[in-house]
Amino acid sequence: MTPRETKPGGSRPKLAVWKFSSCDGCQLTLLDCEDELLDIADAVEIAYFLEATRTTQPGPYDVSLVEGSISTAHEVERIQEIRRDSRILITIGACATAGGIQALRNSMDHESLKASVYPSPQFIDALDTSTPIADHVSVDYELRGCPIDKHQLVEAITALLKGRKPSIPDYSQCTECKLAGTACVMVTKGIPCLGPVTQGGCGNLCPRVGRGCYGCFGPKEGANTAALAADLAALGADRRTIRDLFGGFTAGAPAFAEERSRHDG
């Protein structure tokens, strides 16, 4: 057996996985870690993970992975409990880190929106807004994406087990393209792309198959969305196209929400 980090008493660190308003895809990324899953299960005690098992153990937990946005009054309370019970809290995915696609409602009238979707809107008990976890409790690390990247997830777990800082780059998606040798879709084909204002880390998924980045990793630090939007307009994108480009899975992230509102109407 190889040595592993153990807590006093010899037990493995306890990992919990929590779900808020979300589609479960990011949690599934943990189960998608096929090659690493046995090693993860060996290194940590999976104490709470309803997607995988009904067996649960009470807190406190060493690491909590939190998926989903805060979308109901009940969730506002529940995230506080989870924070209290967690030594390290990592938010995973576009919903938890930016409010998700459901944050599109933040700029609309919620009552009329409910009425337009549900035959009996009076039964819908939801907040007017969908907000990221960090708006409610302190968050130790963020993994971006819709869904998250499995390599970043494994890196985060591995680093925290060893007590080192996870290597989660804050550079642009363009940096990933250039590291991979992917030709720029905007420069060579004029395809609208959010890569220059989006945080990298997805593994260069869209541009490498000739598609523009749609920003599911959310804004990179210092995202100059206004300059990119002006350039997209120069390439021929109309206001609505630009608005919708910034209104995707990370529409609630402030930099994207502002750019979207500048192209509203």
Binding site: T2, R4, S172, C174, T175, K178, L179, N224, A227
Partner: peptide
């Protein structure tokens, strides 16, 4: 005002030489 700080210029530049070093570890720490 115009720069996206996306780093494309440096990454296509044939003389930009900056690099960074990262350590990675296996899950079992071995």
């Amino acid at each position: 005002e115009r720069c996206l700080s996306c780093a494309n210029c440096t990454l296509v530049c044939p003389t930009c030489f900056c690099g960074t070093v990262e350590d990675r570890s296996s899950l079992d720490g071995a």
